[in-house]
Design a protein around this nucleic acid. Structure first.
Length: 609
DNA sequence: TTAGGGTTAG
């Protein structure tokens, strides 16, 4: 645009085409600089040159880019007064797009409704408009209406349809649209492929997403970002980072999305070294450190237990948003400083920032850690006032908080009267009864679930099996374990096997537990091994205990509790030298078991809300 | 010289 400006300055007699070229240029550039398009329009007006429809379309595009509603409205008004753009589908589509980007969908819908010739472009503008406003159902509705009216779709509209399905997690419908692309014979371009990769990863068909990604020869940053997000959603943090490294290695410059993805993955992995490198990369490459990026860095440091660094970055954020405050609060809660989290909440309120359900849940966790039942009740009342009391996450968090603070009746009331249709709330209540050792109530609740036709998921079974093993209800536990596969087609995972191994070994059925243990992959059975080791000691089976102890020491050489368990086993059987040797090994490695503590509510501070 | 398509946190 610099060269274009120079040429423009050299022209002495400027006409509408010259001005329009400059305006179009700035409208296409995007970003903040787009405002220059309006400067040229004013200059043009001063010289007494009238804009034509091309000028108007470009100005509308600039207004859309800058989300400048007032400018957009005045262009609309001018067009009506001068009779420009009537029955012109390109102009009307630009007008619709401007209203959509300025978040006035009603005006856009009104213009769209009155359009005599609805072109494929105008349909697409409406569909993407709703998608960008976070209304995928409305967007899909328009897509279906378009198909119903026999408008022949182009690749853009089909890709839009796929994006609707991605946001709604409608796998079957997405596949149907993909089938239509194949039937028509469109060749997938980069953007349509990206939409498909996004749809498949959001619908948990990760293998298919990766296959599509692999066949693309010339990938761009967005395709990489979508694939990285797919890895993240499917729990593959290491692979996300590998893909980021591959992308940078291939010469592509990461953008905001890539940075957010890789930081999120490093937080999952608690990899502070990697996190610091990315932080350094951002500073070194003068990447714009906006609130979004800073929030993710705060979260990364907090997850990696580097709370001081997290606070430093947090303090440096100029425009802190809700996520900045919540991330920092969560950091303090993870790291045993709930008081500071509550203090931050108060500071946030002083800044007149409104909280949402996630902030409220964090606050509940802080009160839970401090054992403040009365303040937790206050949060509950507040959730009524702010209408957050119907959100599943809030309800489940309240159920857990009440249960952990000893008020099981309140917890049960919440389940019965607010969220009876939601499996996660049942799971929370089942886990709560399990926590209190009330296995009979756990099993009764499971029966109720069946009679109310609530389909249990894998978490339901983990909680039930844990409760059974802690209460010694072996037969019941085995019965539930067997019905998982038979009645609900849920294949038991490591967690379930771990529970059953724990259940059997606590009951002294060590041989059966050992047989099951051998079925598990070593890496994922550490907790089951620890349970068996403890049980071997209690039931006096030192021989088996020693075998498992050695496996466990190989598997988790940095865990102080493993050394404790093994040394206690030796001590119990009179092998004092071995016991001392094991303790020494832990000492040499500088491992020390953290002391446990309990807390009771004494004098909660004054109201926080 | 003119319109419509892909990723994004707690």
């Amino acid at each position: 645009m610099v060269c274009a400006s120079k040429v423009f300055d050299e022209i002495t007699e400027r006409d509408v085409v010259v001005y329009t070229s400059m305006i179009t240029g700035y409208a296409l550039v995007g970003g903040h600089i787009t405002y220059k398009a309006f400067e040229f329009a004013r200059l043009m007006q001063k010289e007494g040159i009238d804009p034509n429809r091309v000028t108007m379309v470009s100005l509308l595009q600039a207004a859309a880019e800058l989300e400048a509603l007032e400018e957009g409205r005045s262009i609309h008004g001018y067009a009506i007064r001068r009779g420009i753009g009537c029955s012109d589908e390109v102009f009307e589509t630009s007008l619709m797009d401007m209203y959509i980007k300025c978040k006035v969908p009603t005006m856009a819908a009104c213009i769209f409704g009155r359009m005599k010739m609805k072109t494929i472009g105008s349909w697409n503008a409406m569909i993407t408009g709703y998608l960008n406003m976070g209304q995928p159902l409305e967007a899909l509705g328009h897509f279906c209406k378009m198909v119903h009216e026999n408008v022949f779709p182009d690749l853009i509209s089909l890709a839009n349809g796929i994006l609707c399905c991605a946001d709604l997690k409608y796998l079957q419908e997405g596949k149907t649209i993909q089938g239509r692309i194949i039937r028509i014979g469109y060749e997938l371009d980069l953007i349509a492929t990206t939409a498909l990769v996004d749809m498949y990863s959001k619908c948990n068909d990760f293998t298919r997403a990766r296959k599509l990604f692999d066949v693309v020869e010339k990938r761009d940053v967005i395709l990489y970002n979508v694939m990285m997000a797919g890895y993240l959603q499917n729990g593959f943090a290491t692979e996300t980072v590998d893909l980021f490294i591959e992308m940078v290695g291939s010469g592509l410059k990461p953008n905001l999305g890539s940075i957010l993805n890789v930081l999120s993955a490093l937080s999952e992995m608690k990899n502070v070294r990697g996190g610091r490198s990315v932080h350094g990369y951002i500073l070194k490459h003068e990447f714009r450190m906006n609130t979004e990026v800073a929030n993710q860095i705060v979260y990364m440091y907090a997850r990696c237990s580097y709370i001081y660094d997290a606070r430093q970055v947090f303090n440096g954020i100029r425009y802190k948003d809700l996520i900045s405050w919540t991330s920092m609060m969560m950091g303090y809660i993870y790291h045993a400083n709930p008081e500071e989290a509550i203090l931050l909440f108060r500071m946030m309120k002083r800044e007149k920032l409104d909280h949402d359900s996630v902030t409220l849940i964090s606050l509940l966790q802080a009160f839970l850690k401090l054992g403040h039942l009365s303040l937790a009740k206050e949060v509950h009342c507040h959730s009524y006032r702010t209408r957050l009391d119907h959100e599943t996450l809030v309800i489940n968090s309240l159920i857990t908080t009440y249960a952990k603070l000893g008020n099981l009746n309140m917890a049960r009331n919440l389940l019965e009267h607010t969220n009876r249709g939601c499996v996660t709330s049942w799971n929370t209540m089942i886990a709560a009864y399990g926590m209190h050792g009330n296995c009979k109530e756990v099993l009764r609740l499971f029966d109720r679930m069946r009679s109310e036709m609530i389909k249990p998921d894998d978490m339901t079974f983990t909680s039930i099996l844990t409760a059974c093993s802690h209460s010694g209800m072996v037969e019941e536990g085995l019965r539930v374990f067997n019905c998982m596969r038979e009645d609900y087609c849920i294949i038991p995972c490591e967690a379930h096997y771990g529970c059953i191994i724990d259940l059997l070994s606590r009951a002294g059925r060590l041989e059966e537990a050992y047989e099951l243990l051998k079925l598990l992959p070593a890496r994922q059975s550490a907790s089951a091994m620890a349970a068996m080791l403890a049980a071997s000691r209690i039931h006096g089976n030192t021989e088996l205990g020693e075998v498992i102890g050695h496996w466990l020491l190989d598997l988790e050489p940095e865990s102080p509790s493993v050394y404790n368990l093994v040394s206690n086993l030796y001590a119990e059987s009179g092998k004092w030298d071995e016991a001392a040797r094991t303790r020494n090994m832990a000492k040499m490695r500088g491992l020390k078991k953290a002391a446990g503590y309990s807390q009771i509510e004494l004098n909660p501070r004054a109201s926080t809300m």
